[in-house]
Simulated assay, not measured.
Amino acid sequence: MSKVKGRDAKSAPIGLREKSRRETLGRIRAAAVELLAERGYDQMTTREVAERAEVGEATLFRYVNSKQQLLLLVVGDKMDEHIDTIIGEDTRTAKGGPADAGSFLQRIHGLYKARADFYLGDPENVTSYVQNAFVAGSDLGAKNIAQGDRVIERVALIIREGQALGHLLASVDAQVVAQNCQGIYVHEILRRSVRGFSHESLEERVRARLDAQLLPLVRP
């Protein structure tokens, strides 16, 4: 391992330039968090973020190249943490819970209840995050898809575990069902405003559609 003045490079002090960079990025992130909460993604401007962070707009664009990347910086990072949490919670549930058909379906419902709770914490900005992932050339697209894929893989894993134990139909493609479950969640977020649904109804709407996917998997 390389050394820096007798100490591991890993523990070497941060240089002044890097310290300044991190502090500036921290101010930009904090400003974006505040303005997203106050004004929402659609109304917030990069100029406002720069002013709140006490940097020039040209400096702001050395750290992020678009307003979309500000959304990625704030909501995208929170989404990563959220998915880490729900996967960890499901892992603990799997170790301590009963092994019957209902328990596997409940684990999937638990994942999407937690996802609905995350949405309710910041519905307008989470909606903007999901919407912008579908814009051609979006900065958010790759990250959002990777996050969705993590949830899909977890749901597919749960289904395969149930199939292996004989509780769920083995003839069903677990990956396709998991993709459908994720598609339901995204669709219900995107159609809320068009249909005039309340934010609070997301969990109920998702659960009803998940049941239509999952209940037929239970072996008679």
Results as ranks from 00 to 15, higher is better:
residue 1 M to S: 12
residue 6 G to H: 06
residue 11 S to A: 10
residue 12 A to K: 10
residue 14 I to D: 10
residue 17 R to L: 09
residue 24 T to P: 03
residue 25 L to A: 15
residue 25 L to E: 14
residue 26 G to Y: 08
residue 28 I to M: 04
residue 30 A to L: 04
residue 32 A to L: 11
residue 34 E to Q: 13
residue 35 L to R: 04
residue 42 D to L: 09
residue 42 D to R: 15
residue 43 Q to Y: 03
residue 47 R to S: 14
residue 48 E to R: 07
residue 48 E to P: 00
residue 49 V to F: 03
residue 50 A to E: 03
residue 56 G to E: 02
residue 65 N to I: 07
residue 68 Q to E: 15
residue 68 Q to R: 04
residue 71 L to W: 00
residue 73 L to M: 15
residue 75 V to K: 04
residue 76 G to D: 08
residue 77 D to H: 07
residue 80 D to K: 14
residue 80 D to Y: 06
residue 85 T to G: 11
residue 85 T to K: 14
residue 87 I to K: 09
residue 88 G to K: 09
residue 88 G to I: 07
residue 90 D to S: 13
residue 90 D to K: 04
residue 95 K to V: 12
residue 95 K to G: 07
residue 96 G to F: 00
residue 97 G to L: 02
residue 102 G to F: 06
residue 102 G to H: 02
residue 105 L to H: 01
residue 107 R to T: 00
residue 107 R to N: 01
residue 108 I to S: 01
residue 114 A to M: 06
residue 116 A to G: 06
residue 122 D to M: 03
residue 124 E to A: 12
residue 128 S to T: 06
residue 132 N to F: 07
residue 132 N to S: 03
residue 132 N to P: 01
residue 138 S to A: 02
residue 139 D to M: 07
residue 140 L to W: 09
residue 142 A to K: 12
residue 142 A to M: 12
residue 142 A to Y: 11
residue 144 N to I: 03
residue 144 N to A: 15
residue 146 A to P: 02
residue 150 R to M: 11
residue 151 V to Y: 02
residue 155 V to P: 01
residue 157 L to I: 01
residue 161 E to L: 06
residue 161 E to N: 06
residue 162 G to R: 00
residue 167 H to V: 01
residue 173 D to Q: 04
residue 175 Q to G: 05
residue 179 Q to D: 11
residue 180 N to T: 05
residue 181 C to K: 10
residue 182 Q to H: 13
residue 182 Q to R: 03
residue 183 G to A: 08
residue 185 Y to R: 07
residue 193 S to C: 01
residue 197 F to I: 00
residue 197 F to G: 04
residue 199 H to D: 13
residue 201 S to R: 11
residue 205 R to Q: 10
residue 206 V to L: 04
residue 207 R to G: 01
residue 207 R to W: 01
residue 208 A to V: 09
residue 211 D to S: 13
residue 212 A to N: 03
residue 213 Q to S: 05
residue 214 L to I: 02
residue 216 P to A: 08
residue 219 R to L: 15
